[in-house]
Simulated scan of single mutants.
Amino acid sequence: MKGKRRNGLPQYCSLVIDRHKKRRIRFRAKGVDTYLPFPPVGAEFEKAYAAALAGVTEWRANIGAARTKPGSMDALAVSYYRSPQFQGLRDSTKQTYRRIIETFRVKHGSRLVRDLRREHLKILLGNMADRPQAANRLLSLLKIMLDHALDNGWIAVNPAAGVRGFKKKTDGFHTWTETEIATYEARHPEGTKARLALNLLLYTAQRRSDVIAMGWHQVSGKTIRVKQRKTGAELDLFMLPALTDVLFLLPKDKPSFLLTEFGKPFTAAGFGNWFRDRCNEAGLSHCSAHGLRKAAARRMAEGGMSGDIIKAVTGHTDLKQVSVYTAAANQAALAEKGLKAIAGKKKRTASVQPVRKVGQEKGE
């Protein structure tokens, strides 16, 4: 969701009181004028807000199609938005792509696609050297859009093909250490919502977008069923005592285990921000919700679990991705296990002393 304005509400939103004296959130922008659920938090509001934003984008695309210069980057963006390739993306991905593309269009939308050269792209990326990740994301999107232009006969060659972005080695989200987990637990004791959040993240090894949706409707016996929002993978996860002992104290008439102060389910972004504050309270500003998913994978790796077992828990389909998650496993401990396996098990042979005959003296 876009950043909040001075009134504390998302872009295009305002608080109104209807004729029944009820509070409502009005979304008003060119092409869209509608009401959204109150309060302005939770999955229901996020879904309605995303739909309203999509309506604004569609309206702009329809208007822009008539105003854009044929063959321009503006026209290419409008054409790409309407393509099956773009329409088939998840809503969250569409929003991310639109944000990057629209920022690019502000400066370069009027330029013709056929005039774009490799040297232009290199200059463009060079000017973003202070933001290498953003530059790489833009390059990836331009490659996709220019492939779309190529497929539709706008250009004969994709000038972005083969252009390399910045090399930026990163381990991604920090993997929580055992000391950091203990520090968080000391700051947020059992019975707090902050501790519940940590238990759900760590003892299911799932993403924040899946953890916020977890509730009693997914529990069957000692198993919780998860359908991952990002991949669609369906997992049946055994609930450890460290998790069940906490969950069985929670009411069973709520939509999810984790709720906002308004009693509504969190959004992924909202939960991320809320959990960030809880980490900061524990002096762990470098830790995140996703880092606990990696910590769970680390624990499994250190416990000698195979890549296939770890995949069964995390829902990954690629062992290469699992290796990224388990990179923080204790190398020394794992190496010791490996070296002992190389040595194998040696058979010990006991030395047998000859039996002395009755009456035989020692040394005879």
Rank of each mutant, 00 (worst) to 15 (best):
residue 162 G to Q: 03
residue 163 V to Y: 10
residue 163 V to G: 06
residue 164 R to N: 12
residue 164 R to S: 15
residue 165 G to I: 07
residue 165 G to Y: 09
residue 166 F to A: 11
residue 167 K to A: 13
residue 168 K to F: 03
residue 169 K to Q: 12
residue 169 K to V: 12
residue 170 T to I: 06
residue 171 D to F: 11
residue 172 G to Q: 03
residue 174 H to N: 07
residue 174 H to K: 09
residue 175 T to I: 03
residue 176 W to Q: 02
residue 176 W to K: 02
residue 177 T to A: 04
residue 179 T to Y: 10
residue 180 E to K: 06
residue 180 E to G: 06
residue 182 A to F: 05
residue 185 E to V: 06
residue 185 E to M: 09
residue 186 A to P: 05
residue 187 R to H: 04
residue 188 H to G: 00
residue 189 P to L: 01
residue 189 P to C: 02
residue 190 E to K: 10
residue 190 E to Q: 11
residue 191 G to E: 04
residue 191 G to P: 07
residue 192 T to I: 05
residue 192 T to M: 05
residue 192 T to D: 05
residue 194 A to T: 11
residue 194 A to H: 13
residue 195 R to C: 04
residue 195 R to I: 01
residue 195 R to D: 02
residue 196 L to I: 02
residue 196 L to R: 05
residue 197 A to M: 13
residue 198 L to F: 02
residue 199 N to A: 14
residue 202 L to K: 08
residue 202 L to T: 05
residue 202 L to I: 10
residue 203 Y to V: 04
residue 205 A to Q: 10
residue 205 A to P: 07
residue 207 R to K: 08
residue 207 R to G: 07
residue 208 R to C: 12
residue 209 S to F: 11
residue 210 D to M: 06
residue 210 D to N: 07
residue 214 M to W: 06
residue 214 M to F: 10
residue 215 G to T: 06
residue 215 G to W: 05
residue 216 W to N: 03
residue 216 W to R: 00
residue 216 W to E: 01
residue 217 H to N: 13
residue 218 Q to W: 05
residue 218 Q to I: 02
residue 218 Q to D: 13
residue 219 V to R: 12
residue 219 V to W: 02
residue 221 G to R: 11
residue 222 K to N: 15
residue 223 T to Q: 13
residue 225 R to W: 06
residue 227 K to S: 13
residue 229 R to M: 14
residue 230 K to Q: 03
residue 230 K to M: 00
residue 232 G to I: 07
residue 232 G to L: 06
residue 234 E to P: 07
residue 234 E to R: 14
residue 235 L to C: 08
residue 236 D to Y: 04
residue 240 L to A: 07
residue 241 P to H: 10
residue 241 P to T: 10
residue 241 P to G: 08
residue 243 L to N: 00
residue 243 L to C: 00
residue 243 L to R: 01
residue 244 T to L: 07
residue 246 V to D: 08
residue 248 F to M: 11
residue 250 L to G: 07
residue 250 L to H: 08
residue 252 K to A: 14
residue 252 K to L: 12
residue 253 D to F: 03
residue 254 K to I: 15
residue 255 P to I: 10
residue 255 P to D: 09
residue 255 P to Q: 12
residue 256 S to R: 15
residue 257 F to G: 07
residue 257 F to A: 04
residue 260 T to P: 09
residue 261 E to R: 15
residue 263 G to H: 08
residue 267 T to R: 13
residue 268 A to H: 09
residue 268 A to W: 06
residue 270 G to L: 02
residue 270 G to T: 00
residue 276 R to K: 15
residue 278 R to V: 09
residue 278 R to K: 15
residue 280 N to L: 14
residue 280 N to M: 13
residue 280 N to W: 10
residue 282 A to T: 01
residue 283 G to F: 11
residue 283 G to Y: 09
residue 285 S to I: 14
residue 285 S to P: 09
residue 285 S to H: 15
